[in-house]
């Protein structure tokens, strides 16, 4: 049986009366590239925020590497949120210094090298950078940690196709060996070739969780086609 790095048991999350996550039981296998897939509003980001400790009001149990969410779990999770969270008045050097000071596993030289390869000016303030550049910068900082778990929430949303390829190239080539990668996205066709394992969320419930190759073999279809079948929308007349 595959070892799990994250265990979720009976997870429920309410936003008022709306149930965003509904009795979710899930485990994330260790050392795999896992796609947390689903349309907008399926509960992906809610689940990610719970795993990273950014949402604290929920019912159920979440274990990260065998322990409840705590300061220790933050030491082993490197998280790329779906929006820019770095202070606008910072420049690149400020961000590098911050990550170096607070994360013991942060590789300063690697981060600097990645950022220089991207052609980003070290002294430029974040507020003057484009959305795509900020995304690449945050990605470089996240990948420069020797984390056990990398979580990327919508890393390619709102980014041009060339930049998407670059982002996946960076994720595949710069993450720490033996780490677990969780990519949360609704852009299945872009990401399916790199995934080992897929979890489909639909209206707060786990619809499907399986090895990607097994899904393709059993259905004879691509992951994107399976996704479209699962989340089929009624045609608009």
């Amino acid at each position: 049986m595959q070892e799990s790095i994250i265990e979720i048991k009976s997870l429920n999350k309410y936003y008022g009366k709306f149930k965003a996550l509904n009795q979710v039981d899930l485990s994330f296998p260790k050392g795999k590239i896992i796609g947390l897939l689903g349309p907008n509003g399926s509960g992906k980001t809610t689940m990610i925020k719970i795993l990273t400790g950014l949402l604290k009001q929920y019912q159920g149990e979440v274990l990260i590497d065998g322990s409840p969410i705590s300061i220790e779990s933050k030491k082993i999770i490197s998280y790329l949120p779906d929006k820019n969270c770095l202070p606008n008045k910072w420049n690149v050097l400020d961000a590098l210094e911050f990550f170096k000071d607070f994360y013991e596993d942060f590789e300063y030289d690697k981060a600097k090298q990645l950022i220089m390869q991207l052609g980003i000016d070290m002294n430029k303030k974040f507020k003057s950078l484009s959305k795509g550049t900020k995304e690449k910068l945050q990605l470089s900082l996240v990948l420069s940690r020797k984390a056990k778990i990398y979580i990327f929430d919508e890393p390619i949303a709102g980014v041009d196709p060339a930049a998407r390829d670059l982002i996946f190239h960076m994720i595949l080539n710069h993450h720490h060996e033996d780490s677990t990668i969780i990519i949360c996205t609704h852009l299945i066709s872009e990401v399916e070739d790199i995934l080992d394992y897929a979890i489909f969320l639909n209206q707060g419930k786990v619809y499907l969780r399986e090895d990607v190759n097994k899904i393709k073999e059993s259905s004879g279809k691509s992951l994107n086609e399976v996704f479209k079948e699962v989340y089929r929308y009624a045609p608009i007349n």
């Binding site: 990273t52 400790g53 950014l54 300061i71 220790e72 933050k74 030491k75 999770i77 998280y79 949120p81 929006k83 969270c85 770095l86 202070p87 607070f102 994360y103």
Partner: peptide, 12 residues
């Protein structure tokens, strides 16, 4: 805006 960064830090 910066709360994600703050609350992801491994500090109490």
């Amino acid at each position: 805006h910066e709360a994600y960064l703050t609350h992801m830090l491994p500090v109490s």
